[in-house]
Design a protein around this nucleic acid. Sequence first.
DNA 1: AAGTTTCACAACCGCGCGGTC
DNA 2: CGACCGCGCGGTTGTGAAACT
Length: 284
Amino acid sequence: MGRAPCCDKTKVKKGPWSPEEDDKLKSYIEKYGTGGNWIALPQKIGLNRCGKSCRLRWLNYLRPNIKHGDFTEEEDNIILNLYISIGSRWSIIAAQLPGRTDNDVKNYWNTRLKKKLLGKPKQQQGDPNGSVLSSSALERIQLHMQLQCPQQAQQLQNPLSLLNNPSVWPHKLHPFIQDRPIQHNNLQTINIPSQLEDLDQSSSLNGSTSSEISNGVDNNNNDNNMINNFGDNGYVGMERVSSFQAELDQLLGGNDNNEVNEIERISGWWSDDSKSTNWDASTN
DNA sequence: AAGTTTCACAACCGCGCGGTC
DNA sequence: CGACCGCGCGGTTGTGAAACT
């Protein structure tokens, strides 16, 4: 049984919003609020739009104090570091950037910042979908390496090479962060939102199942997902690597001895403080 | 100048989650 | 306890403008 649509898609208007529609929506919400029900809102104000569309329009465009365009270098840094740390959780990243929306940050990342940092993606030979890691995970590895050791980043032709390169592995990351402020590259303090903690409790994180998440991660604690580290030089990186690691685990899920060794090595990576290297210390 | 490609951004879509009944 | 509903999120698509050939 499929999900019931939120509205009749054939009867509601789609596409760009007209100034009149904007006016209607904006003035109503400013006067009366959303009433806690977006689905009913368009009917109330006589807009032939889907409630979800109204919500999106308000949040991304009409809401007061929205900034558009012209991301600063500081914002770039915040986005970059958080992307490396937590991946594509745009709402959390956007929450650190006053006036920015998740949609804005996501678009900016996808269209500009990613290219700026990684260069244009090269077409892979052979199976374009055959990458052993997700593009997001690869990007994060590559970005991290680029920040840490640009010369090694260049060698990242094969994602597997990462596994043979302990110098770029993160050292152990502490199991908990709870609204702990972290220093961000001398720029500002970022409060890691408690949402992150909440997210950990959920069974789904970036598509990873709970079993994937718990597989092989530091289990000193019930929370085996939150991985975090603080270097001596202020903020350096906070990583929630569960899904990322799940991918690595999956990647290493084969049976030959080399792969088993790699699994052990990776397990040690996540649990051994002494392997401390430099996942942290981003050096923009 | 015209056609094509690339870019940037707005908007849509589908899914998971949590609340309610 | 399960079904239903609305919200919020992330991925994807559509479209107009700019750049290029």
